[in-house]
Design a protein around this nucleic acid. Structure first.
Lengths: 211, 211
DNA sequence: TGTGTAAGCAAGTGACTACTTGCAGCGCCA
DNA sequence: TGGCGCTGCAAGTAGTCACTTGCTTACACA
């Protein structure tokens, strides 16, 4: 677990402690302990707690890599389900730190740019995909890509943030939720899709062939 | 702004300070200043900071009253739009305190019950409504009420939480977002609905007649 | 008019916080 | 081999935190 570099070790520790305790709860002592480093090393390396946390956040966003959506839609149900699944997993892994960051942004607006980078990127990707789907003529009814994208991403985001707190409010099982949201959205857009019962199996079969 | 009762004044002040600064940032001094009260009065009234915050949270959830959905759906588009609008307004008014609470829950699980009361209630109401819609036969396609409810509530929740941070990711104008989400969901369920253009005007007309 | 109760003020306690100073050990490269 | 840079340890500073004590004021009710 110990990082090669002292600096990276402190950054990773800071991310972990921040995710658990937020800014005010991330004492330099706690971070130093988590990094297995003397508290003073933090000040020598980063100058202040604030600078450390700022750098740790940037360090974190750079490490994110989202699944890509194809520029030309081929199998909307499969592509959208897989993208949703990768996105929800990304959010679930980071749910603690996302919750903390969202609550700190009002007090530290400089974190906003850093925090909104990933969702902005995801929203753009998804909007582009839905627009391509629309232009392709696959979709019968008219719709706003931005509204549709906000709806799917919103459902995924809320699931990732709220399921630990209220598991009975969200669809079961957890592992199928992303696909269900994606399927529901496609139905709203009028894209033909398999019946709810066969969906799961067929998509699993497809995954085997596609990879 | 000053409350009749000293106790209620402190509780209101505690809610405001907590919404701004979270638990750790809600110092007893800050709360006392906000309430226009001596710091000691807080300890004499509530015993400890923790007890005060707990009581303030309960005080807050009790003051919530959501719009009701009819037991028998008549005009799904109007009813769901109005419910969504009232729900999103409820969340927007409380966005700061919701963000803070969500980030504190991991450290203070006792807040969970209090925090999840309103969304649980909303989810149940919405599920019941969608189930009634399904049984009524208005809906052609098969769907899971819980998934559909989670999707609509998720979209509304994310909008209410994220729009300040990234306004360009969500549908414009802000005032029409809830209705757009509701309309999109109904299309996913196969409910016949007006075209996107006439929707807004018609619903406004209806509101005049219905009240 | 007397009494109890809620509130205020001044002052202070011990614990914790971010951050500093001074000094010593250790490995790396010239 | 010698110096340099990174790290650790001990100790300490000034500020803030939750919470306490002792005493005083003001109002309600009898």
């Amino acid at each position: 677990m110990r990082a090669v570099n002292t600096r990276d070790g402190i950054l990773n520790a800071a991310c972990g402690v921040f995710a658990q305790h937020g800014f005010r709860g991330s004492t330099t002592r706690r971070i130093a302990d988590a990094a297995g480093v003397n508290e003073i090393t933090i000040f020598r390396q980063f100058g202040s707690k604030e600078a450390l946390i700022r750098e740790a956040m940037q360090h974190l966003t750079q490490s994110a890599n989202l699944a890509a959506l194809p520029a030309v839609p081929v199998d909307p149900h499969r592509e959208l389900s897989e993208w949703s699944e990768s996105f929800i997993q990304h959010l679930r892994l980071r749910s603690s730190i996302i919750r903390k960051t969202m609550s700190e942004i009002e007090e530290r607006p400089e974190m906003c740019e850093c925090a909104s980078y990933v969702p902005r990127q995801a929203s753009n990707d998804l909007c582009d995909y839905l627009t391509a789907l629309k232009k392709q003529g696959t979709i019968r009814v008219d719709f706003e890509p931005k509204t549709a994208a906000a709806m799917l991403m919103g459902a995924i985001f809320s699931d990732a943030m709220g399921r630990d707190m209220m598991p009975d409010v969200f669809p079961q099982p957890e592992s199928a939720a992303a696909e269900k949201y994606a399927g529901l959205l496609l139905r709203a857009l009028g894209v033909e899709t398999e019946s709810a019962h066969s969906t799961n199996n067929q998509s699993h079969l497809r995954k085997q062939f596609s990879h």
